[in-house]
């Protein structure tokens, strides 16, 4: 299957000399939910902005469903709905008018039934005649989502859609996202809530200092997540792992005082009982032990720090 978005070696250096993207290559598959993670200033918004036409790239190419975003921008942009990170809304227009305006701007014929559905899905229907300036921040964010959905895009970019939205509405929002995915819409989102990425995404990409440092299926990441480590604090340092214990694939800590055993908590046999028996048989004594589990957040942090 051909990717719906293909980013090739994309670079962006801002006028200030700041290099925000450094040779990013990425394929997004049709119909998937892709979560883009990374610390503040990593380049997430810049990457999205470049694909959507808000930022001029300094190098590389992007195609959307085979259409180059520069030479064939019309065909490319028609497919895309964008919800930017910052709250940018009109002030004196009504919710209904601003959402209808977006549909017209994207060249779609009027369709009040569709607009109504979008507003209902986002719990905005009873505020449809309100002036935007009278809405709360969370409502404004949903208005921006409604605007992006007004023209029935095939691809939806959500740049931190849940910032400032309360828990219940956040759930509602993810329901909307799931329903969109069910109709075949491709969704690219950024978030600082890793649980959200964990819950929603099919694939996860991690970006740092303008470079994509990891792209993986979420399930593959979860595999790492399912791993636990058992550490044995030894009475006396040892030089090497004794050959009798080779089967356990143990690691020795840098200071030679800890033996580290990695196991899968979801496996039927973790092998811990046997390991402890064999350690004793090998004449190794330990005075303490602890276990720890890495979360997606930890994986993420360790990646970003590297």
């Amino acid at each position: 299957m051909a990717p719906i978005i293909s980013v090739q070696n994309l670079s962006k250096t801002y006028g200030t000399g700041r290099k925000a993207l450094n040779g990013v290559s990425l394929d997004i598959m049709g119909g998937e939910i892709f979560a883009l993670l990374g610390p503040n200033g990593a380049g997430k918004t810049t990457l999205i902005g470049t694909i959507c036409g808000l930022v001029n790239p300094t190098g590389g190419t992007v195609t959307v469903d085979g259409h180059d975003i520069i030479t064939d921008y019309r065909a490319a942009r028609e497919l895309i709905g964008l919800v930017p990170q910052e709250l940018h809304t009109d002030a004196f227009e009504s919710v209904w008018d601003t959402v209808s305006f977006s549909r017209g701007l994207f060249g779609k014929p009027k369709n009040p039934a569709h607009i109504e559905k979008v507003l209902r899905d986002l719990s905005l229907w009873d505020r449809k005649d309100s002036k935007i300036i009278t809405l709360s921040g969370g409502m404004k964010r949903r208005v921006m989502i409604a605007k992006a959905l007004s023209h029935e895009p095939q691809i939806l970019f959500l740049d931190e859609p849940t910032a400032g939205v309360d828990v219940e509405l956040r759930k509602g929002m993810w329901e909307v996202v799931r329903a969109l995915k069910a109709t075949g819409v491709t969704i690219i989102l950024t978030t600082h809530y890793i649980e959200e990425a964990e819950e929603m995404a099919d694939r996860v990409g991690v970006i740092n200092h303008g470079e994509l440092i990891l792209v993986d299926e979420k399930s593959a990441l979860m595999q790492k997540l399912g791993k636990k480590q058992l550490k044995l604090h030894l009475d006396a340092p040892i030089d090497t792992v004794p050959p009798q214990l080779a089967a356990y694939d143990l690691a020795l800590s840098d200071d030679h005082t800890k033996l580290i055993y990695t196991y899968d908590t979801r496996a039927e046999h973790t092998g811990i009982t046997a390991l402890l028996g064999d350690v004793r048989a090998a004449g190794i004594r330990f005075h303490d032990l602890d276990t720890s589990q890495s979360s997606l957040e930890e994986i993420f942090v360790s990646l970003v720090r590297a």
Partner: peptide, 13 residues
């Protein structure tokens, strides 16, 4: 106000 983002991301010349 920043609402120009929508115009810039729309399929318009």
């Amino acid at each position: 106000t920043g609402t120009i983002y929508e115009i810039l991301s729309a399929p318009v010349s």
